[in-house]
Nucleic acid binder design. Sequence first.
DNA 1: CTATTAAGTCAATTCGCTTGACTTAATTAG
DNA 2: CTAATTAAGTCAAGCGAATTGACTTAATAG
Lengths: 400, 400
Amino acid sequence: MHDISPIRAKSGTNQEGTSAHNRRVMIEALRLNGALSRADLARATQLTKQAVSNIIEDLERDGLVVALDAVRKGRGQPFTPYRLVPEGAFAIGLQIDRHLTRVVVVDLVGNVVARAEAGLPLDEPSPGVQTILGLIAHTRRELADISAQSERRLVGLGVAMPGPFGLKESDDKWMMPAWQQFPLLETLTAGTGLSVGLQNDAAACATAERIVGAAHGVDHAVCLYVGYGIAAGLILNGELYNGGNGNAGEIGRALLSPAGPGATPLEHRASLASLYQHLGLNPADEHLYEKIGALAAAEDAKVMGWIEGAAHDLRWSVHLIETIFDPQTVILTSGAPEALAGRLLQAIHPLLPSIADRPGRRLPRLQLGITDPWAIAVGAAAEPISRAFDPRFSAILKAG
Amino acid sequence: MHDISPIRAKSGTNQEGTSAHNRRVMIEALRLNGALSRADLARATQLTKQAVSNIIEDLERDGLVVALDAVRKGRGQPFTPYRLVPEGAFAIGLQIDRHLTRVVVVDLVGNVVARAEAGLPLDEPSPGVQTILGLIAHTRRELADISAQSERRLVGLGVAMPGPFGLKESDDKWMMPAWQQFPLLETLTAGTGLSVGLQNDAAACATAERIVGAAHGVDHAVCLYVGYGIAAGLILNGELYNGGNGNAGEIGRALLSPAGPGATPLEHRASLASLYQHLGLNPADEHLYEKIGALAAAEDAKVMGWIEGAAHDLRWSVHLIETIFDPQTVILTSGAPEALAGRLLQAIHPLLPSIADRPGRRLPRLQLGITDPWAIAVGAAAEPISRAFDPRFSAILKAG
DNA sequence: CTATTAAGTCAATTCGCTTGACTTAATTAG
DNA sequence: CTAATTAAGTCAAGCGAATTGACTTAATAG
């Protein structure tokens, strides 16, 4: 922001970057594969045994990994597997949805160790933020009871809320105009002292799937999230893709046909908001989740009608996503009860033909992801963890 | 292929990776900014003056950069700018289109130093490949006349042809089934002794735009290529995105509406193939390019009719691309004459509203890119150059 | 019991970036 | 005209993380 050089160049790197990267690679390898010996790690990362030994010793001293009992397996000296220590790091995830907010604390491997939720006023961010800071403080105290060194091991706060961000004017009734204007990140940074990151809810969902779900270890996946709105979280080359302005994947506003009066945004037909409207339910209703879960389980005619319409558009959305991204798999996630999400998944089938329909596929073209209403908050919390520990290009380079 | 470890992990890195990355960063900085002093480079890349000096000395010895005259500017010692040496490296680009093939040799900064073209049989790859190898040998001899050390400085051969690749069965008449089956890359590798890379034509186009065109220095851009077919080249985070199977951006096969008998693939309505059909022209006609150029310049009714239809669909494609990728700009490129491409661009306007319609934009939402029929071949040649000299994550890591 | 296989350590080495002092050469202030 | 200031660039020593190759340890196969 201050004194930007007119010269465009990528940042260089040095031994620090090398070291940081290799540590991250070790941590990711352990997350993806469970427990590994140093010899295994050396083979998998192409580093020497000695380099791996040094790094592991380092990580062990930092409390991020721990040795298990030696294992005898065939000839040769028994190996000592190492695994991640869940209590090695924690992060806080904050989901801000239209009518409620959720806060979770997750550990290094993605376990939820504390959670809290509360209602949220749609049009008044200021008291809402007080509520949020209260929830965060509460979960932090819970965390302190679990882990003595928790504060030192807290790597950040991830925020997930419906996008898109930073547009001209939010006169769209499906949005949250008051929240879009509020200096949320600054307030949260000041109020918590943590490093704060922001994602849209689909991105958070994709991050959750990547850390603990169906996208675990998959480098190219698209996470289609049907929540109050609808959006896609994009995992490309093993990293979340945000776009030029952080709004990539905001397909809720995609028009369903080239033009004309029938051009409807996708989110007006395939989002829970549209379902609530279809059913005449109040979105602020406290028992909404249970109600639509019961209706879906009972295969209520109105719900099934909505499902059919939404599935029709989603089928085509999957086709477009496959055609454009060529992902290894598409993951359908939802803030909806599993009964509803499952029926929606079924209704989307059979899928339209596309380039994804290729020989030698290993992963399904479309699969159901996490259908836990807390998934978004977990994904939000996974973002700082990923930022701190996952191998990524930017982590090798100097500066920030 | 052989003995794949079941352990999933990213590769580690070491000083070699560091060094390779920093050299690439220098080269990219010089390509993007023209000539820079070592002090400028140090500031831009965050490396120390000393590190930059060592690397520049190295690059100079390798013949990749050269010092210009010292420049006095304000206080302090005059600085010595360095610039890239075009003859520092060469690459061959091969475009295989439906009815013809083009070969170019480009230098380090993207200048074409030799070119050749020939017709190609659609259904017989084998004699076609002999033609291609002949063209390559021919341009190589031309190159040898220009640069004595040319062979040593040839970094690779890039191939661009219409995708998608590796599908089940190419019973689609718009495709080139015979070519899809032929072991092209192996034959070319054996026939030239060069390292060979493959892209679809839109990706090649995007690479060309990135090296010498509208996407120069832009990190998030989508290149919409209207050629015989239609596809999008995706530049995400400053690198070309290929997808899980190398078929990302193949939007020609995207269906234009959710379902029903009217569901037409985009390429049946917005591709030059569809124009030829609309006009009743033979795609193998030698003077096709001139013919449609003249018709477009004369605003022929039939051509304008096709433009209107194609623009209708492309307008919506741009909307979808913006909504999904949130790019900084969308670039319309085409193998068509400028008269036609320009009118098509005009006809696409006004654009549909989208998240790209945001305050503080610097780049146009949609702009015309290179409309040179040789652009694809140049982009194909740019791929090995980029692979050899551009900073990228994979270049830091070991092996690969 | 011996040969073989494999995990892991030890100590020396290597290599590219960093550090801090220094040199060179220009402009600006007095 | 001189001295102070500013900035580019060099020099030489140092550092740090991975590498190298020999070595140790401990298991199984024959």
